[in-house]
Every structure is written in C-alpha cells, then in structure tokens.
Design a protein around this nucleic acid. Sequence first.
DNA 1: AATAAATGAGTTACCGATAACTCCAAATTA
DNA 2: TAATTTGGAGTTATCGGTAACTCATTTATT
Lengths: 340, 340
Amino acid sequence: MVTIYDIAKKANVSAMTVSRVINNKGRISEKTRNKVKRIMEELNYVPNEMARSLVLRETQVLFLLVTDITNPFFTTLARGAEDAANKLGYRLLFGNSDESLEKEREYVDTILKSRVDGVLLAPAGDGSLPHLESLRAHGVPFVLLDREVPGIGSDVVLGDSREGTRMLMEHMIALGHKEIALVNGSPEVSSARLRATAYKEALKLNDLAAPPERILELSYAPRSSLARIGEWLDGLHPLPTAILCGNNMMAIQTIQAIRKKGLRVPEDISVCCFDDLGPVGEIDPFLTVAAQQAYQFGYKGMQLLIGRIADKENDGGDDAWTRVLLPAELVVRRSVADLR
Amino acid sequence: MVTIYDIAKKANVSAMTVSRVINNKGRISEKTRNKVKRIMEELNYVPNEMARSLVLRETQVLFLLVTDITNPFFTTLARGAEDAANKLGYRLLFGNSDESLEKEREYVDTILKSRVDGVLLAPAGDGSLPHLESLRAHGVPFVLLDREVPGIGSDVVLGDSREGTRMLMEHMIALGHKEIALVNGSPEVSSARLRATAYKEALKLNDLAAPPERILELSYAPRSSLARIGEWLDGLHPLPTAILCGNNMMAIQTIQAIRKKGLRVPEDISVCCFDDLGPVGEIDPFLTVAAQQAYQFGYKGMQLLIGRIADKENDGGDDAWTRVLLPAELVVRRSVADLR
DNA sequence: AATAAATGAGTTACCGATAACTCCAAATTA
DNA sequence: TAATTTGGAGTTATCGGTAACTCATTTATT
C-alpha cells in the first residue's frame, strides 16, 4: 500500500506537505504542489480513509437501515436518501433489518463500531428503543423514518397514517362497503397503531360494525403471512366485502390468500392498502392505494440528519426535534369494487 | 469516547490486557478477564473498528454494488449476498450505481479509500474496465455478477443468457409469432450482447426475417426509456407481433409504451423478457419471463468472493477464475398471445 | 535599514487499536 | 537444588493519517 510517507520520500518533502496537498490546506508553493500531485498519480496513491477518520473523528459516512429491501417503498426511499447524501457530500451505506429486532441490533452494533457519522432508520418496532438509546448514548445522530418509537425523542419523517387511512376507508365506504376488515402490521409498530385507530374511527363515524375478529395483526415482514391470512379468512363469517391492508406487501399476500380460496379481487373481496408498488406495479395498475411519497421520506430524512450533524459540529443544536409529516395520496385503481 | 485505555486504567491493567480480553487471545486469568469485562460493560465500551482495521489491515467489510436498487432482480440478489455474508462472518454494505459509469467510479473510489476487504459488483458495462483494473491494482478481490467485462479476468456469476433467450424465442415462435422485435440493453453490457446474438440465432434457425430496425438498444437504466420506445414503435412498419425485452424494467416500459399508443398486450403486441418481477409481480401473474435465480446470484457470488479472500490470506489463490453459470427458467404467463 | 508580516515547509504528538517482544514469578522437571 | 517451562501480564513500536506548533526565508511596511 502506498502511503503519504512513500510520496513524501519520493518528492523530497515531509509527509505533512503531502497531507496539505491532498486536503488543499495550508500554504504550498505551486511547484511543490505539482510535484507532489505528479508523484501521487505516478504511484497510484489512494488515501486511507480509516487512518484519516481515526484522527479526525468523523467518517463522512452515513447509514440507512430499512426493514425490507425488497419492498419498493424502501428502495425508492433509499434512492431519495442516496441522492440527498451525495448532493451534500456524504457517502451512504445501506443495511436491511428484515423487520427483525435481532438483525437491527447487529446493525446498530456495526454502526457504533464503525463510527459512522449518522443514521437514518426505519425502526423495526417499539422494541427498537434500546437500540436507539445506544445510538444516543454514543452520540450518534439519527433520524427515524416512517415509524416513531415511544420513549425517545428524535427527528422523524412520518407519513400521514391517520389521513391516509381515512381516505382509503371513505373510498371503500363511499362505494358501498360495510364489512371492512383490516390486515395490519404488528401493534409493536407505531404506524400500524395509527392505522388501526384511524380504521376504527372511520367505522364508528359511519356507524359501521367493528367486530374485533375482523382485525388481523401480523408482522410487516415480507413473505411470511400468506398461510395465516388464509386461516384467518376461513374463520370469518360472513366474509368481509373489503380488506384494508397496512402496507403493500401485506396487500399482495392478502390478494394471493383470497385467490387461493377460489375467490376473486375485487368481485368477491376488495383490497386496498398503504404504499404504492413502484415500477413493477405499473404493468397492471390494479391496486388502489394510499401512495406515500417514498422518495421524499429518504430525501427529507437525509436533509434532517445532515442538518443535525452540522448543528452538533457547530455546538449549537439544542433545537427541539423536527417532525415532518408527509401527506398520502389516494390513487384509485380497480381493486375496490363498486357495490352501489 | 471510551477507549481500551480508559478500561485499562480503571481495571489497573495495561491496554494490551484489555485488547486480549476483547479478542480472546493470549493467556489471561479468569479473575482479570472478568474484572475487565465488567468494566467494559460499566463504561459501555464499543471497540473502534477503524483503529483495529488500521493495524490489522482488514475490515471484515464487503461491498455490493448493483446497477439498479429499484429492480427486484437486484434487491433479491442483495438479500442473497447479505445472507451469505452474514453466515460467513462478514458485514455487507450496499451501493447503487444506477447504470452510470460515473457513479460507479465514485463508488470504486470510496471502496478503495475505505479499504473494504472485497467487492461484489454488477459492472455498469464494458466501460467498467478501468474501475476493475483499479481494484485489481490495489489488491481488492472482486467478483462480477450478471455481466462480464472483456479485458480482465475474474470470478463471475452469470445467468445463461443464451439459453434463456432461446427459450423465450422458441416459446414465441411456437405460438406462431414471426415478427419478433428486441428491446435490449446497451451493447456496452455483455449480457445484452449475448441476448442479441441468441435472438438473431433463433430467428435464423427458424428462417425468420431479422431486419435491423427491429432491434432497439437502450440503457438498462430505469425510468428513462418510455418515450424512446414509443418513437421506435412509431417507425416500425409493420409492427412486430411480439417484443422480447432485455430485462424486466424494459419490459415494463415497453408495455407502457404499447398501451400509450392505444394498443393492448398481448392482443396487439406480445411482450416477454428476462428476469422475474418479485413479490409485486405476483398480484397479477401476467408477464412471461425467463426467470433468473436472483437470490443465487448474490449467494454464490458472495461465497466465491469470500473464498478468494481466504485464498489470498493463505497465500494460495493462484487458481484459475471460477465461472458460475446459473440457468434461467421459462415462466409462461399471459403476456404472449397464441397466434395459432 | 530595521522591523514586522507573510510564505512555505518541517517536527512532534496523537487518534485507538494490535503485534512482537520482554519480563517476572510460580510450577515443573531433572 | 538448580534449571526449565509456562502462565500472566507489561512495553514499545506501528498502522496512516492530521493538528498544532515551530522555524527559516522572503516580502512588505514604516
């Protein structure tokens, strides 16, 4: 490995001079600067960021931890975060916790050990509290995405779960649906709680029955719930005419479960959900959704995070926490039948 | 920040003793070991990986660079790579080059600077050669995924583009299609070249015409080609009865372009492509594809990479390059019309 | 012309860990 | 009993950079 000392020796200067050339700091004559630069190219020098970060105590690296890398909501969010990070001069690394507190814990440990400058994360659930406390205790700034965690304050970018749910519910009710079920994420997750509450509110407001068995609570975790949704449906009498799903991945599995029973969507049961489906969903614009601004989640979250880091460095930063609430948009397609 | 020196002082031992406890190396009495461990917990100590890596000259970190993080092929691949890396004790970081040589160059520079132990990458194209040469020159092991780059040898995991294309072509031809067009990735990309060649072979083998204007070459880059596909279609007389697409994202855009002209898939024009669509595609199993084993690309690639790293450390490793060819599977759905 | 200021660079210490070597005392062996 | 071995640590140098200070020349100022 070529180091600044190798360069220094060959250029007949001190290592410090090389360092100054690299960082464009301090006073260097044009002649020396060019000589050093030439030799750096000659030797194919690449700075060792680890040595640099060790002494500077900052890495210029940020971390994005999502709960499902195969969910288009999160990949779009990731692109937003990436764009913002690059624009603001940071490098961005991704991790995927798969909705698992255990994997999240491992990633948090990695983050702490690697002295990343800040973290953008969608927490796996309320059980993420100790992980966030770790980050806080070690002075690592973080911004939460999509979900809050009770017990700890922080900047956060949220979707408007309440209003989004209301829109979906009103849509279904307006089309004549009265028996509406809910397939939701775990109540461990703040967004799922808000959606459940708004779901019940909407039923009550419209004088509709809300038998508790019509709510199924599952993990948001991908690829795991098909069978359980099927069993739950088997136990429902009468079947609901429509099902609201807590997110896009659950809606997909719900549709599959319905079809497995030989029923059709939306003719037999309607389905709608939170979050859009990304490019793949465009092939067949079928699912009615409350689309969230996934890209903005990442972009705004990254801006908040980098703002925090700057505050911290300027020793300011005793601001209150910022809370960004992104509106959802009702996108009506064909998965909810008109019963009127 | 708590360091081993803080621990050492409080435990009345030397820093080296603390280091030994952390790494379970050398001889330590149970008594000292426990004392040190207790104090580490008390002070909430987290090792500084950067300092550690600096002296050890290895990071235990691997990098996965894909060309489109919103493509389900790559997110599934990423999960495979992640699983393999975790199983084998490495941490994995992701990057997204967006099919851009420039972004790829930036990521490669980041990789070099951060002294990652190895890289798994889908190169943006033949223009990636200098990037790979950089990695090679700096002794960073890498494994290519999905695409080869002429001019440099390496381990590589490829899909069987030739056979996959053949299967798709035979399928269309068997259903009576004679005017088959190709919307392909850039000839800068090895997989696109193979697919183009196999496409022409299949036409010739079946005595079908192959007018050059029936081939459209675009970037695989996402979200950019809709308009150009539309214009290209406008210039084709007669319209093809079927279009083979170089990958799933292009197929989506092709379908959209066809519909924008007021035509239907598959009634007016059939479409099929390489790569499946992931969970979102399950909502409406519509697109006929040559499904590649995305997860295996990541999993096998990671195994190869870690194997290389081990070879390098054991000073062995003058093996020839390994070349894994993963078969594609024809998944017939509804996007190709039966003309018979 | 004498003094002050600016320029261009070198020295030294340190960031937080580990390797390699040293050292002492207790246990083992001849 | 003297000579070895071994268990349990400590010392020092080093990884590859940067901050802060120092110092010798030039150049500008009065």
